[in-house]
Amino acid sequence: MDEKPFESMNMVPFIDIMLVLLTIVLMTSSFIVSGKIPVNLPQATASAPDRSEQRTIELDAEGTIYLDSQPLTTEALGRTIEEEDRETAFLLRADQAVSLQHFVDVVDVLKQLGFGKVAVQTESGGR
């Protein structure tokens, strides 16, 4: 039997693997250093509107809540929609100047009552 002694090792595959690992480390390290991934929330582009029957909840700039154009308080909103089928779709239309807390209060009422079909209306276009 004529066996050749092991004289050298082909390093090219190891170098390729190391370059891939180095690329992965460098790509993820920038996210780790900053602590978060920066997110700019743009205006939404037009999407196909949902044509199913839905109820509309609107919030004006002062934070007044309207359910199908009828003004309500947060508590009254909860009592009013409590009897609705949980599959009812709701469309939230909030003025961009409304306080985030008012918006969260309305979403919290919907979540507590178990409504899952909720959409937020936005304007088409960008800045």
Rank of each mutant, 00 (worst) to 15 (best):
G78P: 05
A44E: 13
T80A: 15
P42T: 00
L67T: 03
K111Y: 11
T28N: 04
T28Q: 01
Q96D: 14
S99C: 08
H102C: 04
I32Q: 02
Q121H: 12
V12Q: 14
D108H: 12
Q112Y: 14
V109M: 03
T56R: 02
P42S: 03
I37L: 10
T88Q: 04
P13N: 00
I32P: 03
E75K: 04
E3W: 09
R79T: 11
Q101N: 07
V39Y: 07
T73G: 12
M18K: 06
R93F: 03
M1I: 01
I81Y: 11
Q54S: 14
V98H: 11
R55L: 08
L59M: 04
R86K: 12
I32M: 03
H102M: 05
D108M: 14
D95V: 05
D16W: 09
I37T: 06
Q112R: 15
A76M: 02
T74Q: 12
R127C: 04
L41K: 09
F103S: 10
A44N: 10
Q70R: 13
Q101K: 08
E58G: 13
F103E: 14
S69R: 10
E62I: 11
V12W: 14
Q121G: 06
D60V: 00
F31C: 08
F14G: 03
D95W: 10
K111W: 10
D95R: 06
S47R: 06
R51V: 07
K117F: 02
L91V: 02
T122N: 13
S124V: 09
I17Q: 06
A61F: 07
D108K: 12
S124C: 08
H102S: 06
R93Y: 02
H102N: 12
L41P: 05
E123A: 06
I15P: 01
S34R: 10
K4H: 12
V107T: 15
S52E: 02
T73F: 10
S29F: 15
G63M: 11
T23A: 14
T73M: 12
S99V: 06
I15K: 04
D95F: 09
E84S: 07
P49A: 02
N40W: 13
R51M: 11
